[in-house]
């Protein structure tokens, strides 16, 4: 087989178009390139090539960093999902993990700050920023039981050189409700009650639960006009968010109806399989 392929390759080379896939002939190819007849437009296209190459290199670089930052942000979210309380400082060990990952993210983002400066902020907009907003807003919610503001998000960014856009913020918050749903489900399964701000627990009926919080967030997005310049994407995310709110509402209902059947503060014995909790 190889005997058939090699002459073919040489045949192609003799036609004088592509030789460079054979290492040995590379210098020859270069000289033929230089001898190639240049026309009136060659230098124009050469300068275009340099410009396009530069832009492509930048796009690749931003893409690579973005992938890594996305992975780290997801790890932060996984760590935060191990938190079991709401409206309390995050436990030290989890906070240490989060800080470590934020430091790594800061290092990575610093390498693309220049590539995203000025006009290029919207040109090569890295998808990882949505993911990072999701992680930052989730941490903020766990600590303060409140939705992070755009200004607080910018302040919480591990790097100062990259301004967040409205789209980064909004799509990050859309993802936040998914994490809130997961958190609500896990805590409810373990504690038998929908997560509520710790300090206000046991007080009057106006305690805010995570169900209320999610309802508020989804109402807000429904009231406000779409932001972020991707209308189809926006309405899809909105539908997902509403679906998540409904799920958590069902969770709250289930606990209200059945949850009273077990004593307050009852925790499942972790040595036994959590059949009761899993079902919910």
């Amino acid at each position: 087989m190889s005997e058939v392929i090699v002459p073919k390759g040489r045949g192609g080379a003799m036609a004088g178009v592509k030789r460079d896939h054979q290492g040995r002939e590379k210098p020859e190819t270069k000289s033929t390139n230089q001898d190639k007849p240049r026309n009136a437009y060659t230098s124009m296209f050469e300068s275009f090539r340099d410009e396009l190459d530069e832009s492509q290199a930048r796009r690749m670089k931003v893409g690579t960093v973005s992938r890594d930052v996305t992975a780290l942000s997801k790890k932060i979210i996984f760590s935060l999902q191990r938190v079991r309380t709401l409206g309390q400082p995050i436990p030290e060990r989890i906070q240490a993990e989060v800080d470590q990952r934020l430091r790594e993210i800061a290092k990575l983002l610093a390498t693309i700050e220049l590539d995203l400066s000025g006009m290029n902020r919207y040109r090569y907009s890295p998808i990882c920023l949505e993911e990072l907003v999701e992680a930052l807003s989730f941490a903020h919610y766990l600590r303060h039981q409140a939705l992070i503001t755009p200004a607080q998000t910018q302040d919480a960014m591990p790097t100062t050189g990259i301004p967040l856009t409205a789209a980064d913020y909004v799509f990050g918050i859309f993802d936040l409700t998914g994490e809130m749903m997961r958190f609500a489900t896990a805590v409810t399964a373990l504690a038998g009650a929908v997560p509520t701000g710790e300090a206000s627990q046991g007080e009057a009926a106006d305690d805010r639960t995570i169900v209320n919080d999610m309802q508020e967030v989804s109402s807000m997005f429904q009231i406000c006009p779409p932001v972020g310049g991707k209308p189809t994407n926006y309405s899809k995310k909105m539908d997902v968010m509403i679906e998540q709110v409904l799920k958590v509402e069902r969770l709250g209902y289930g606990v209200t109806v059945r949850g009273t059947e077990r004593p307050k503060g009852w925790m499942p014995d972790l040595k036994e399989p959590l059949r009761d909790g899993d079902a919910e």
């Binding site: 409206g87 701000g197 710790e198 508020e216």
Partner: peptide
């Protein structure tokens, strides 16, 4: 309390 008065 760490908890903010309002969600939003």
């Amino acid at each position: 309390s760490n908890t903010a008065a309002n969600m939003i």
